[in-house]
Amino acid sequence: MSTQTAMPVRHHHAASWAVPVVLGLAFGLYVAFLESNNGASDTRTTVSSTVGGAVCAVLCFAIGRVQTRMSRERRAAAYGAVFGGALGYMLSISGQTALEASLVGLFLGLSMALVTFYIRYTQEA
């Protein structure tokens, strides 16, 4: 009989990668829709939607991987930053000025951070 202990097996749930992929695809498709409605070239539409969707998916995956090790405040700030940045970027593509898009993105990011903090604060003991 062996005295070696077995190494724990790490199981990754499908949601840990499926949710970021779906969010990235949705973000990329909506960016493509906004770009094409504003008369952008096909190359610009393809590049901005692909890069935007990939960045969104990677950021969502990264936050999902480390969120259990983060404090409530940092987790809320991370969710708020990604949400506000994504919506600010979409607003800038849709024709808003950079200042308007930045202010609305900042406001929505702060709102998301507050909501996330409240949910985590009331759910965690």
Rank of each mutant, 00 (worst) to 15 (best):
residue 1 M to G: 11
residue 2 S to T: 07
residue 3 T to W: 08
residue 3 T to N: 13
residue 5 T to R: 12
residue 5 T to D: 11
residue 5 T to C: 06
residue 6 A to S: 12
residue 6 A to K: 13
residue 7 M to E: 15
residue 9 V to E: 15
residue 9 V to K: 14
residue 9 V to T: 12
residue 11 H to G: 10
residue 11 H to N: 15
residue 12 H to G: 12
residue 15 A to C: 12
residue 18 A to G: 15
residue 19 V to W: 09
residue 19 V to G: 06
residue 20 P to Y: 03
residue 20 P to N: 08
residue 21 V to A: 15
residue 24 G to F: 00
residue 25 L to T: 09
residue 25 L to Q: 08
residue 27 F to M: 05
residue 30 Y to Q: 08
residue 30 Y to C: 05
residue 31 V to I: 10
residue 32 A to E: 03
residue 33 F to Y: 11
residue 34 L to S: 00
residue 34 L to I: 03
residue 35 E to N: 10
residue 35 E to T: 06
residue 36 S to P: 10
residue 36 S to R: 07
residue 37 N to E: 11
residue 38 N to W: 08
residue 38 N to E: 11
residue 38 N to Y: 05
residue 38 N to M: 10
residue 39 G to A: 01
residue 40 A to W: 06
residue 42 D to H: 10
residue 43 T to W: 12
residue 44 R to V: 12
residue 45 T to E: 00
residue 45 T to A: 00
residue 46 T to S: 13
residue 49 S to P: 08
residue 52 G to H: 01
residue 53 G to T: 01
residue 53 G to N: 01
residue 54 A to M: 05
residue 55 V to A: 10
residue 56 C to T: 13
residue 57 A to L: 05
residue 58 V to P: 08
residue 60 C to E: 12
residue 61 F to D: 04
residue 62 A to M: 07
residue 62 A to Q: 08
residue 62 A to R: 05
residue 63 I to L: 10
residue 63 I to E: 03
residue 63 I to M: 07
residue 64 G to F: 00
residue 65 R to H: 12
residue 65 R to G: 06
residue 66 V to D: 07
residue 67 Q to K: 13
residue 68 T to D: 15
residue 68 T to N: 14
residue 68 T to V: 11
residue 71 S to W: 09
residue 71 S to M: 03
residue 71 S to C: 03
residue 72 R to F: 07
residue 72 R to T: 10
residue 73 E to H: 11
residue 73 E to W: 14
residue 73 E to P: 00
residue 74 R to E: 05
residue 74 R to L: 12
residue 75 R to V: 04
residue 76 A to S: 03
residue 76 A to E: 00
residue 77 A to N: 00
residue 78 A to Y: 03
residue 78 A to Q: 00
residue 78 A to H: 01
residue 79 Y to M: 00
residue 81 A to C: 05
residue 82 V to F: 03
residue 82 V to C: 02
residue 83 F to S: 02
residue 88 G to V: 03
residue 89 Y to R: 06
residue 89 Y to S: 07
residue 90 M to Q: 09
residue 90 M to Y: 05
residue 91 L to Y: 08
residue 91 L to F: 09
residue 93 I to W: 04
residue 95 G to Q: 04
residue 98 A to S: 14
residue 99 L to F: 14
residue 99 L to C: 08
residue 99 L to Q: 07
residue 100 E to V: 15
residue 101 A to W: 03
residue 102 S to T: 13
residue 102 S to M: 09
residue 103 L to K: 02
residue 104 V to A: 04
residue 104 V to K: 02
residue 108 L to P: 03
residue 110 L to T: 04
residue 110 L to S: 04
residue 111 S to I: 09
residue 112 M to L: 05
residue 112 M to F: 09
residue 112 M to E: 10
residue 114 L to W: 14
residue 114 L to D: 09
residue 115 V to Q: 04
residue 115 V to I: 14
residue 115 V to Y: 09
residue 119 I to P: 04
residue 120 R to V: 15
residue 120 R to D: 15
residue 120 R to H: 15
residue 122 T to F: 14
residue 125 A to D: 14
